[in-house]
Design a protein around this nucleic acid. Sequence first.
DNA 1: CTGAAAGCGCTTACAG
DNA 2: CTGAAAGCGCTTACAG
Lengths: 359, 359
Amino acid sequence: MPYPEGGSFHEALPQAMKKKPTIHEVAARAGVGLGTVSRVLNNHPAVRPETRARVLRAMEELGYTPNPHARRIAGGRSYTVSVLLPFVATEFYRRLIEGIESVLLEKRYDLALFPILSQARLKRYLESTTLAFLTDGLILASYDLTELFGEGRLPTERPVVLVDARNPRYDSVYLDNRLGGRLAGAYLARFPGSIFAIKVEEEPDRAFRHTVFSERMAGFLEAIKEAGRPFPEGHLYVTRLSAEGGRLALRHFLEKASPPLNIFAGADQVALGVLEEAQRLGLTLGKEVRVLGFDGHPFAEEVGLSTIVQPVEAMGARAAQLLLERMQGYGGPPREVRFEPTLVERASTGTPPEAPYLP
Amino acid sequence: MPYPEGGSFHEALPQAMKKKPTIHEVAARAGVGLGTVSRVLNNHPAVRPETRARVLRAMEELGYTPNPHARRIAGGRSYTVSVLLPFVATEFYRRLIEGIESVLLEKRYDLALFPILSQARLKRYLESTTLAFLTDGLILASYDLTELFGEGRLPTERPVVLVDARNPRYDSVYLDNRLGGRLAGAYLARFPGSIFAIKVEEEPDRAFRHTVFSERMAGFLEAIKEAGRPFPEGHLYVTRLSAEGGRLALRHFLEKASPPLNIFAGADQVALGVLEEAQRLGLTLGKEVRVLGFDGHPFAEEVGLSTIVQPVEAMGARAAQLLLERMQGYGGPPREVRFEPTLVERASTGTPPEAPYLP
DNA sequence: CTGAAAGCGCTTACAG
DNA sequence: CTGAAAGCGCTTACAG
C-alpha cells in the first residue's frame, strides 16, 4: 500500500510517513481544478477572490508547499536564485545577503548561497548539471568572474547581476569606492597633524581580485594631494583585513611622526585595531590620534568610529531588483547602478576645526 | 519559431540560443529508446556494453547533461546533497568540504553548500520549499541543531549525517578532541618549564555551540594533572580564534613566568600568533618557548609548528560515505564514527628529553 | 473566471 | 537486454 488513502488512517500516520500533499489534494479539498490551484500559486489575476480564498485555505489546512523541482520542470522557473560569493564570512557579505534576501523573499523567491571555495568549484557550479546553474538567476558578489570564461560571458543563459563588481556585459551594482576615498582624504586633510593611511591587501589571483581597496586608496591620495597636504611614501601601511593590522600600523606610524596623527584605515575592521592600540597606549582619540574607517560596520557605531558608510543592504536589495526585472523578461542593455558612500562623524576623529587647516 | 528544428540551422545558432539536449535527442541519436538512455544514466547493469557505449557517445556528442530537477521529480532523487555549515570561512571547513566532495563526486553526486548565517535562515532552509531540503541528503557540520526542533529531530525525512558534532539520533563522524587534548598535555608535560594553555572561545548561543575547544582543554588539563605538573589558574588564557590571540597570550604568559614556557594552543591559528610573537621577541622556539597547536592546518608544516592533527578530509569523506549508504537504503541504527588525532612533532617544540621530566 | 488536456525531462515497472 | 507506457508535481495555452 504505497499510497495510503482515507483520512483517518492517513491522519494517524506519524509525521515522518505522511506524503507531502500535492496540488491534487489541494484541488480536491478546495473543490476546484488543478489549473485553478496553480493559478493562485502563481498569483494569476484571473481567479475569483472567493475561489482564491478557498484554495488558500485548503493549502493552509493541508500544509501544502509547492515543489520547486516540479515548477522548474513544468514552467521553467524554480523560484530560487543563486548567489555566488567569496568564501569569506565577513559582515559585509552577511549584510549583502540580508539585502538581497529582503527583496527576494517578498517576491516569494528563495535564494541559495554558493560560496566559491576555488576556481575548480566555481567552474563546476557553472556546469549545467549543477543546482547553482539551474536556478532562475545568478547574483555574483565581489568577483567579476567573466574573464574566467570564453568570450567574457558566463556560461549561462539565465540573467546575471554583479554586486560589488562591474562588467559592461551585465547589470551591476557597485559602490563608488574612489569617491569614498576622496571623502576620507578631504575630511582628514582638514585636521592639523600628519596624515597616514592603511591599505588592505588584495587577493593575488587575477580573476578573483576585487579592487575596492585600491580604489579607496586612490581616491584618498587624490584628495590629499588636492588639499596640498604631504603624504610621504612611508605613510602608507599595507596589511591583511584584521584588527591586528591596525594595531601594527599605529605602532609603525608612531615611529614616523608624533601626535597628532590622522589615520585613514581602508576598512573598519582595521580601524578598530588602530582604535584599540591607541587606547592601550593612552593616546587620546579624536585628538592625538584620529581614525577614520571605511564600511559602516555595525560595531563602528558602538565604539564611536568615524567611518565612510557603504549602504550594503541597499546595494544587495537593488541587485535583487535588477535580477527580478531580468527574470521577468526585461531585455534592455546592461545597467550600472552606482551607490555613493557617506561620511559619518563620530568620536574617533572628533570634529574638524572651523577654519580649514592650511599647511 | 520557438523550437528551431533542423540540424544546420540549429548548429548555426549562437551557443546561447541552443536548447539543452534532452534524453529524447540522445535516444534518437543513439537509435535506442528513452528507457535505455535512462538506464545508462543510472548505471543500470542490464544494458549491453555495446549499447551503453553508443548512448554514452551520443551524450558526449550532444553535450547532454541530465536535468536534476526532472530526475528528482521522476525518480525521487536529484543526485545532490546539502551541506549545512557555519558561516565561517576557515581552513577546517575548506578541508571538510573537500573530503565530502571527494567521495560524492565519485558517485556522481553534486553538493550544495548552505552557510548558516542565522537561526532564522536555518529554519527557512529546513522548510520543505527550500532547495536545501529537497536534496537527497543532509550533512550538518559542527552544529548539532537538533535541539532547535521539536522532538529533537530535524524536520526532514531524508538521511542526515553530522560531522564534527554528535547526536544519538543520527549518524555522526567526529574527532576525539579530548584525546587530542590528552596527547597535547602528556607531551608538553615531558618538558621542563612552566605549562600554559590558550583556549579558544566558543559561541555563546546554545544551539549553535560546538564544544570542541572545551573538550580539547579538558583533555589537556587531565593529562597535565595525571603527569603531576602544576597548572595555576592564571596559566589559562582565553581568546578568539585569531593569531592575535596567540600574540597577546604569549605576552601575558611572559609576565607570569620566565622561559622555558610550554604552551598548548587550542588551535593552530592561535599557535601561529604565539610563534610569531616569540620570534619577534627574540625567543628561541623549541627551547625558550615551546608551542603545540591543534588542527593540522596546512601552514603548520610550513612554519614548523608541532600540532595535534585532525584528519579533516577523512572525516568529511567518511560522513559522505555514511550518507550515501543511507541514501541507498541502509536502515540500521545510528552509527558513531570516532576519529583519533595524532601528534606531529616539529621545530616549534623541539624533541622532548629522553628521560621524562619529573617535577 | 475555470476545467481538462498536453507537456516539461526524466524514472520505473511491465512486457517482451 | 530493450522499448513503450505511465507517472512524478507542476504550468500553460485552449476551450468554454
